[in-house]
Design a protein around this nucleic acid. Structure first.
Lengths: 198, 198
DNA sequence: CCCGCAACTTGACACTGACAAGATTGCCCG
DNA sequence: CGGGCAATCTTGTCAGTGTCAAGTTGCGGG
């Protein structure tokens, strides 16, 4: 008898196994962190054999590197749409909240293949987007070195996002909208000197 | 013959296996991150059997939780010695650089036993030290909510430290002293409004 | 002195990432 | 149109890991 049992029988070719494994991996990482990620578990979820993922990502490191590259691409995209620097910061925080798995992996270099081409180019793109947003505020008009202003803005946004994801701001921020809170912080950092009276 | 070969013969009891494993673990984590940590490897380094670590830490999670608790203790100690808030920030950054393994584990909650007593008390201590340093600047005199000022200061220091450890500031900061750079950032955040003329 | 308990060992099991070799299938080129 | 080829996926295997259970060793207090 030929294997015509289409309802239960899986096709030999998954169709889009790469995407399926990526999204499953993102779920696992968002829930339990990168250390909880198991290639065999992802294969089981996708209904394929335990060695199938290796064909798309070669490695565990390869999978995580692909995730990081995708993350930097997404981040660059949203940063490039930002109006001003404060908006860029808000988008940075929003990105971390909407893509926690990407975010976490992007900034854990020991999990990544540092010389991967897709990764490095995507990261460069995101870096340029960030620098663009910073230079738009003309920090030199505040008497501040542009590069330092960039580091300050990035540190503030990155620290806020990181603390948020690690549930260290649940107390202070409470149920307030994190993006709104961050807007206040950004205002603290880049307020003009009030030379005008009052 | 009695076992008098102190040079080659290992005693059955290690002496201070707990500390030995902790420091070995810190080395591994600082070099290759928490995911590279293997209990069996630590046991080998200490010259004990593969199950010996479990007696002191029960778990891999237990070991990491102990590291995090120790880290929060150290952090609380140094923050309590800070003169003002800027100094506290500098100490925060210095702590991250001098104890990168502790720092990384402390802020990776999915690796920790969240309800561990030692951990929660140490973390609370560190949190109080931080709040103390923030309240000392009387942020309300700047027209800023104290709680938000704390979040801002913490975010800035934490983001800077995190980006530093993940080698994301190697370009911008270069070979400059990171603590000095951070001093500049802190000054940006908490400068007074220059109401006085000039 | 001895006995109890903490520190450590030995052994086992299920799970994992990685590799090698084979099976299946879509599809491109003749 | 059909044959082969390369991409995709499977099966089998190996060393390494965390964790548990059960046994050993040896120190210190009764």
């Amino acid at each position: 008898m030929p294997p015509e049992k289409p309802s239960t029988r899986r096709p030999y070719h998954h169709g889009d196994l790469r995407r399926a494994i990526l999204t499953a991996a993102l779920d696992v990482i968002a829930a339990d962190g990168p250390s909880a990620l198991s290639l065999r578990d992802l294969a089981r979820r996708a209904g394929v054999s335990h060695a199938a993922p290796a064909h798309h990502f070669k490695d565990r490191t390869g999978l995580l590197t692909a995730i990081a590259a995708e993350g930097f691409g997404l981040l660059a995209g949203t940063l490039n749409e930002a109006g001003d620097l404060k908006d860029a910061g808000v988008r940075y925080v929003r990105f971390a909240r909407e893509h926690p798995a990407h975010f976490q992996v992007m900034f854990t270099p020991e999990l990544l293949r540092a010389d991967d081409l897709e990764l490095t180019t995507a990261r460069t793109l995101a870096g340029e987007a960030l620098r663009g947003a910073v230079s738009a505020v003309r920090p030199e008009s505040l008497g501040i070195d542009t590069r330092l202003a960039g580091v300050a803005a990035w540190s503030l946004a990155h620290g806020f996002a990181t603390l948020l994801l690690s549930h260290n701001l649940d107390g202070p921020v409470g149920d307030k909208d994190p993006e709104e809170v961050f807007r206040t912080l950004a205002a603290m950092l880049f307020r003009r000197e009030s030379r005008e009276n009052t």
